[in-house]
Amino acid sequence: MVTVALTPLGVTILGLLCERTMHPYEMYQLADARRGRVVKIRPGSLYHTVSRLEGEGLVRTTGTDRAGNRPERTMYEVTDAGREALVHRVSDMLATPVPEYPQFPLALAEAHNVDAPTVVELLRERLDHLTREIDELDTAAALACSTEIPRIFLLGNEFLVTVARAEHEWLSALVADIDSGALPWLSPELVERLTHSRRIPSGSAKD
């Protein structure tokens, strides 16, 4: 069993090389087109990751390629160990939820420390960002469709837009509840009531 730790970019590179032999620049172009919203992709990081994967025996060079007047580019292919590592890592990620502790749920849990009007304003700002993100994902999906990229390569983007739409719907309802007062905000009176409700009645403690 292969136990090499794979980064998200490493998973992406191995996945691309399982399709065919490529040079790093082609990997970057394809990864950016298919995975740009799923994993952070920068040319320098990609070249570094390819080198690391080669050192771990997960990919290997197959020679060089030259197209027109362009400089020669080193070609890479995935090894059997690389395929095994990819299948093991992807299978684990698909089946096993991992607590990631994102910042936004923590911010929501502590939002009562900020006054309600400000929270409403900030969440409306977040909703604007989400709207733009959804539009960008929809545009990317339309472009992928027009260029006939198979849907199987775009499932990550489909998940992201589904989550973004669900978050937008939930946040819109939350903002309405806070703004209308349907969700009582933290006040000195509410704090006192909560504190009082947790007090142990006199004489109830046992020796």
Rank of each mutant, 00 (worst) to 15 (best):
S146Q: 06
F153W: 15
I134T: 14
F153E: 13
P150Y: 05
L123G: 03
I134P: 02
L174G: 02
I178S: 04
E148L: 09
L154G: 03
L155K: 15
R165T: 08
E136K: 01
E189A: 08
L123C: 00
V175I: 09
R165N: 02
T147C: 04
G156A: 10
V191Q: 05
F159N: 12
A166C: 02
T131D: 15
L190A: 14
L130N: 05
N157E: 14
V191M: 08
S172P: 01
A144H: 04
N157I: 06
A166H: 08
D138G: 04
C145Q: 10
R124T: 09
A182W: 01
R151D: 03
T147N: 08
P188F: 03
I149S: 05
L130V: 02
C145N: 14
D135Y: 01
E192C: 05
N157A: 10
V163A: 05
V191Y: 07
E192M: 14
L155Q: 12
D177R: 13
V175L: 13
L123S: 06
E133S: 08
G156V: 05
G156R: 05
W185I: 00
L122K: 11
L155P: 04
V163T: 14
R165L: 09
L160T: 02
A164R: 01
L123K: 09
D138T: 07
A141S: 15
A182N: 05
L174H: 11
A144F: 01
E192A: 13
E167Q: 15
A166R: 12
E189K: 02
V163E: 06
L154T: 10
T147G: 00
A164S: 10
D138E: 14
D128K: 11
A140C: 08
D138W: 07
V163P: 00
L190H: 02
L183N: 00
R126M: 08
V161I: 09
L155F: 06
T131K: 04
R126V: 07
S146M: 13
W185H: 04
A144L: 04
L130S: 06
W185K: 00
S180Y: 06
G156Y: 01
C145L: 15
E125C: 12
I152R: 11
S180G: 00
A164V: 03
L143M: 09
H129R: 15
V175D: 13
S146T: 06
D138A: 13
E148S: 11
L143N: 10
R165E: 09
L137M: 08
L160M: 03
L186K: 09
E136D: 12
T139I: 06
N157F: 07
L155W: 11
D128F: 14
P188H: 01
V175H: 11
L122H: 10
